[in-house]
Amino acid sequence: MLGLIRRLRTQPRGDIGATAPPGSGHGELPLSANRAEPALSKLQLLVTRKLDGLLQGDYLGLLPGPGTEAGESREYRPGDDVRRMDWPVTARTTIPHVRQTVADRELETWLAVDLSASLDFGTADCLKRDLAVAAAAAVSHLTVRGGNRIGAVVGTGEQIARMPARSGRKDAQGMLRVVAQTPARPGRADLGGLIDSLNRPPRRRGLTVVISDFMVAPGEWERPLRKLGVRHDVLAIEVVDPRELELNDSGVMEFVDPETGRLHEVDTRDAQLRSRYAAAAAAQRAAIASALRGAGAAHLRLRTDRDWLLDIVRFVAAQRHARTRGTTR
């Protein structure tokens, strides 16, 4: 399916009737209106078949949790969220208690989708951009039901587009269509500004999902993400390509930074260079994971060379297993 999106985007210009986005290094095109619908419909069918058979329930979410409506109190257990401490009961009994909550009947979900130029890269089954669209489709499928609403903010370079939260699968499909057709623009990604756009204006408590490759210094987005986590459950979906983690021995290669256009020539036959590259990449990913953990966000990593639907299923299962043991993440 992701290959279908990629093929439709790379058709000759005369066949699609669109112009190449400014700053795209490889001439890829955004999906046209008449081409996006069949691609997204097939993607929706794929998500439905895979996830409906494995994840049962009427109110599914990537972060199945306790909700926000007040319920009964129980004694505190290691791993419980201290933000749910029931201080009046704790004071009366002198034993720490937490307030249990019940799931809301309506959930508001917001997506922050980073579609900056760095996501127009992929060396495996698809581009990172295609995987980001697929992740948005999966989140939409798992949350839009029973009157739940979903909205999105999409960042391309320094520009941010906002789509208001609406309920219903038809509106969700329209939102995904806009996301899939968003053209890439040159310039560095303002991931911090994209995340901070979900903090203003204040929204009702719900689920926020940040989809990005996080190829920006954590210091630029960690604080807005931490602020977002004070009010909402936050899920960070990190999109990764295997060549961002290690290099193969492929001789002399030219690399172009899609955000700045800078060209680098690298001799990948150098074993020490490949080793240093892998170590630097591992340190970068560890810093990203540490920043996400420090911000209180759940972390899901999707790779362009793996079964992304299976990774989502495993993530949801692990989250639910952690919840049943009384832990928060």
Rank of each mutant, 00 (worst) to 15 (best):
A33Q: 15
A91S: 12
L45N: 14
A112G: 04
P201K: 15
H232Y: 04
F214W: 07
V234Y: 03
Q56C: 09
D305W: 10
E254I: 08
F121S: 14
A36R: 06
G57N: 07
R9N: 15
R323N: 14
D196T: 09
M1T: 08
P64V: 14
P258D: 06
I160F: 06
L300R: 00
R74H: 05
P78D: 12
P224R: 03
R329I: 03
R285S: 07
L194T: 00
P64D: 14
V230C: 14
R303T: 08
L119S: 08
A280P: 04
A298C: 15
L115M: 02
S116L: 00
R185Q: 11
S116F: 00
S24K: 06
A236G: 02
R9P: 11
R83T: 11
L31W: 05
K42T: 15
L194R: 00
A18E: 08
R314P: 00
R231D: 00
D58P: 03
A283K: 05
L302G: 02
Y76L: 12
F255G: 13
A161K: 06
D81T: 06
R13E: 03
S24F: 12
R226L: 11
N148S: 15
G3V: 01
T48C: 13
L119N: 01
E158H: 13
E28S: 15
A287Q: 02
A322Q: 02
D249G: 07
R276P: 10
G65P: 01
E69A: 13
A236R: 00
H299Q: 05
V256L: 14
S290V: 09
N248W: 13
A91I: 06
A165W: 09
P12F: 07
T19M: 12
D213R: 00
P218N: 13
T101H: 14
T19S: 14
L43I: 14
R92W: 11
D305P: 13
P242W: 14
G79K: 03
P64F: 13
D104C: 12
V133A: 07
V98L: 03
R243H: 15
R329F: 02
V178W: 11
A165F: 04
H299L: 10
Q181M: 11
F315W: 11
L2Q: 03
V133L: 02
L176Y: 01
D130W: 12
G3L: 06
E220V: 08
D257Q: 01
A189S: 03
H321L: 12
L228R: 01
L225V: 09
V153A: 00
F214H: 08
A36V: 09
T68P: 14
T94Y: 15
L198F: 03
Q100W: 05
D80G: 04
P38D: 03
R129I: 08
A280N: 02
L198K: 00
Q284L: 08
R303M: 08
M1F: 10
T156F: 11
A134F: 05
L55W: 01
R92I: 02
G3D: 05
T93L: 06
L207Q: 03
L309K: 02
H26W: 12
A33R: 08
A184D: 04
D249H: 05
